[in-house]
Write a protein that binds this DNA or RNA. Structure first.
Lengths: 122, 122
DNA sequence: TCTGGTGTTATATATGACCATAACACCTAG
DNA sequence: CTAGGTGTTATGGTCATATATAACACCAGA
C-alpha cells in the first residue's frame, strides 16, 4: 500500500513534501489536523521518529502548530507562505538544473513548447 | 573552488551527472580520457573512493571503459546511449514530479508558456 | 481516577555516504 | 630496473538516516 519511497530522497523529506503538496492542493486547510504521527507511521510502515522529523520541519517552517496531547494543525497563512517560499526555492534550486537537463537532452521543444537554442553542437 | 555540492544528492551521484553532462554537451568525445580519479578528488576536495564510485557507475552504464594503468575513456556510442537512456529516465522519473510541482505552485504559465493541462501526455 | 488518543524523548542497532591513510596492481617512458 | 602516471582495494573512523522498543508528557472523556 505504502507509495514506495523515492530512493534519491530521505523518507522524512518525502513525508514533509507530501504534506506540503496536500496543503498547496487544498486537501489540508487551515485548522485541519494533520494525520497523526503514529497513524502515518503505521500506514506507511515507517518509524514514528521518521514521521516526527518530517513534522518538525513543518513546524520550523511555520506551517503547522503542535498541540501536545491533541495533534498538529495547519496554520492560517500556510498556503500563502508555501506559495511564496516553495516558489522561491523551486525557481532557485530545482528549475535551473531541470532546464539545463531539458536542453541537454534536446527536449526543449517537446516539453516547453519553445524552439531550442541556436544550433551549435551536433 | 569546488562547485559546492548539492545537499539533496550524494556526491558520487553528482560527479556522475557532471560527467554525463560533459558527454552530452560534447566536451567529452569518444576516445577522450576522463579526468583521473586522483585529479578529480584533489580538485574537488573529495575522497578518491567517492570519485571511483561515480566512475564505476559510468562503466556500469556502458559509457566509459576502464584501462588499468592508463585511465578511463569515453566509449563510442556514449552520447547516443545517453540521449536515449537519460531521456527515458528523465521523462519517467523526474519530469512528472517537476510538472506536478510547477502546477501546484501556479507557475505553469510562467515557465511553460501554456495553460495548466488536466493530465496525461505520452 | 482510568482509558485512549495525541506529541516527545531515550536507548540501542543497522546501513549508506563520506572521509583519511595506505597499500596494491597495471601501464608507459626512461 | 626506476619513476611516475593510471585504476583498485583494504582499514578504520564519522555522520546522517532509519529502524525497534520503550517510556514520558499532555489532553479529552467516561
Amino acid at each position: 500500500m505504502d507509495p514506495e519511497w523515492n530512493d534519491s530522497q530521505p523518507i522524512y523529506r518525502q513525508i514533509r513534501d507530501r504534506v506540503v503538496a496536500m496543503i498547496l492542493d487544498g486537501l489540508l486547510k487551515p485548522g485541519d489536523p494533520l494525520p497523526s504521527v503514529r497513524n502515518v507511521a503505521t500506514e506507511s510502515r515507517v518509524n514514528p521518529l521518521t514521521v516526527l522529523k518530517a513534522y518538525q520541519q513543518l513546524t520550523d517552517e511555520g506551517l503547522v502548530e503542535k498541540r501536545r496531547g491533541l495533534g498538529m494543525f495547519v496554520n492560517e497563512g500556510a498556503r500563502e507562505l508555501l506559495l511564496s517560499a516553495e516558489r522561491e526555492k523551486f525557481l532557485k534550486e530545482q528549475w535551473p538544473e531541470v532546464l539545463a537537463t531539458i536542453q541537454r537532452l534536446g527536449l526543449t521543444d517537446e516539453l516547453l513548447g519553445k524552439p531550442p537554442k541556436p544550433a551549435g553542437e551536433g
